[in-house]
Design a protein around this nucleic acid. Structure first.
Lengths: 127, 127
DNA sequence: TATTTAAGGTTACAGATGTAAACTAAAGCA
DNA sequence: TGCTTTAGTTTACATCTGTAACCTTAAATA
């Protein structure tokens, strides 16, 4: 069975960059991620840890190593979503959605999007 | 401004028990939570940490202390949900819901609930 | 060619977390 | 009243996470 890969919050930002830009060099990663206020060393540590977790890998065919993801964003999202719902909503998807719909802190845009989505899905249901 | 309270995964289980059963003694907590395979010590540590995080408090009017939550489950859920969506779905509620609806790993019951909910909300929207 | 820069590797270190033992004092039971 | 149980406190210890310095070597540049 597949080993659990746990990606920490900071590591997630690195993954996002790699998901959008597979096969980048460390220089590119650094350039992008130093915006988070991280030092050079910090970024290298995060990348190294992701390699050791087998979340990303190194392609060293060229002179400079290039990094690429081994797991897809979608896969990770599903996994995170599942464990989140289990932990916080006792596994109940509908409780989460109800809660979301009731969250008055949603921005107008979010509420609009959510309602549009719900409406659209409701209609599809009727077919 | 309110200090950030971070409740870990294990601690969350203790909180859930206290949310359902406010004002319980340590004995009751132990009885309930030892089902998770935790030793007596572990449970006491978790409770102590929650007290020091000010997530729960002690009522010591009676001979035996009773513990009760200082923060509501709803408040915690909203906070967790927000940070989850920010981290994993780049802040997009609708991306989360879309993803949920597309998750083929939902149980039949979940799908049913979700669709029912969506339908219900879609109808309410039309009013 | 001497100096600066960057890549890759090694080491560090504090705080959070999971998990628990050990100690002390009180309380209940034999 | 001595023994057992338990509550509350203190201490422990490995792993994960956030954050980074240092070292060595190769490459780029003055």
């Amino acid at each position: 069975m597949k080993k659990e890969i746990n990606i920490s919050e900071s590591e997630w930002l690195v993954m996002e960059y790699l998901w959008s830009n597979p096969l980048v060099t460390i220089t590119e990663i650094r350039k992008e991620l130093s915006a988070n206020g991280w030092s050079d060393s910090t970024i290298k540590t995060l990348v190294r840890r992701l390699v050791s977790k087998k979340a990303i890998a190194i392609n060293n065919e060229a002179a400079t190593f290039r990094y690429y993801p081994l797991i897809s964003q979608n896969e990770c999202r599903l996994k995170e979503t599942r464990s989140f719902i289990n932990r916080v909503y006792d596994g109940s998807v509908s409780m989460l959605v109800t809660n979301l719909a009731a969250d008055s802190n949603l921005t107008d845009k979010e509420t609009e999007e959510l309602l549009a989505l719900i409406e659209k899905m409701g209609k599809e249901q009727e077919k």
